[in-house]
Amino acid sequence: MTDRITAPRTLPADDIWTLASAKARLSEVIDRAQAGPQVITRHGKPNAVVVSADEWARKTARNGTLAEFLLGSPLRGANLELERVQDAPRDEMP
C-alpha cells in the first residue's frame, strides 16, 4: 500500500494504517485485528490501536483484588520507615 507509513520496530508495516486508509478499509482493519494489533496513525504518528475483542478482554481482565496484590507484595514485612511531610494545609478554593 502506498499510504502506509514506516512501522514501529515491534509491528510489521502491514499492521500500520493511516487514518484515511483505515476509514476506507475498516472491515479489513477489523479482520486483520483478529491476528494482531492494527495501529492507526494521524499526521504520521500512532494515534489508536485496534485489537480483537478477545485480546481486549484478556488484557483488561482483573487478576485479583487490590488487597490481594498488596498482600502479595515482596515489600510486605520489609519494615520500611516512611516519614510523612507535615506541611500546612492548602488554602481553600473559592
Rank of each mutant, 00 (worst) to 15 (best):
L80A: 13
T60I: 10
A57Y: 08
A53V: 11
F69V: 12
E81N: 12
G77R: 03
S73Y: 07
A48K: 13
I30L: 14
T65H: 05
A53R: 07
G77N: 01
I40Q: 04
N47T: 01
K23R: 15
Q34F: 06
A53Y: 01
E68F: 03
N47W: 14
R76P: 00
N47M: 06
K45R: 12
A48Q: 11
T65K: 06
I40P: 01
E81A: 14
V50T: 02
L26T: 07
S73A: 13
L80M: 14
G64L: 09
N79T: 05
G77M: 05
L71H: 12
A57I: 11
L70V: 06
W56R: 03
R58V: 11
R76K: 13
A35P: 01
P46Q: 10
N47V: 05
E68A: 10
K45D: 10
G36W: 03
V49E: 07
L80I: 12
R76T: 10
I30R: 08
D54P: 01
E68S: 12
P46M: 04
S27K: 14
K45C: 10
E28G: 10
P37Q: 03
L66P: 00
D31R: 07
A57W: 05
G72A: 14
E81Y: 02
A33I: 03
L71E: 14
I30D: 02
G36P: 02
Q38M: 08
N63A: 10
A35D: 15
R58C: 03
V29E: 07
S52H: 01
R32L: 12
R42P: 00
G77D: 06
A35C: 03
V29W: 05
R32E: 15
G72D: 14
D54F: 11
F69I: 06
A24C: 11
S73D: 15
A61Y: 04
S27R: 13
A57R: 12
A35N: 15
A53M: 08
P74Q: 15
E28K: 09
L71G: 09
D54C: 03
A53W: 00
S73N: 12
V50Y: 00
N79P: 00
A53G: 04
T65V: 09
G64E: 09
A61D: 10
A24V: 05
A33C: 06
E28S: 11
A53L: 09
S27Y: 04
N47C: 03
R76Y: 02
V49M: 09
G36L: 05
L71D: 14
L26C: 06
Q38D: 10
H43G: 02
V29A: 09
L75K: 13
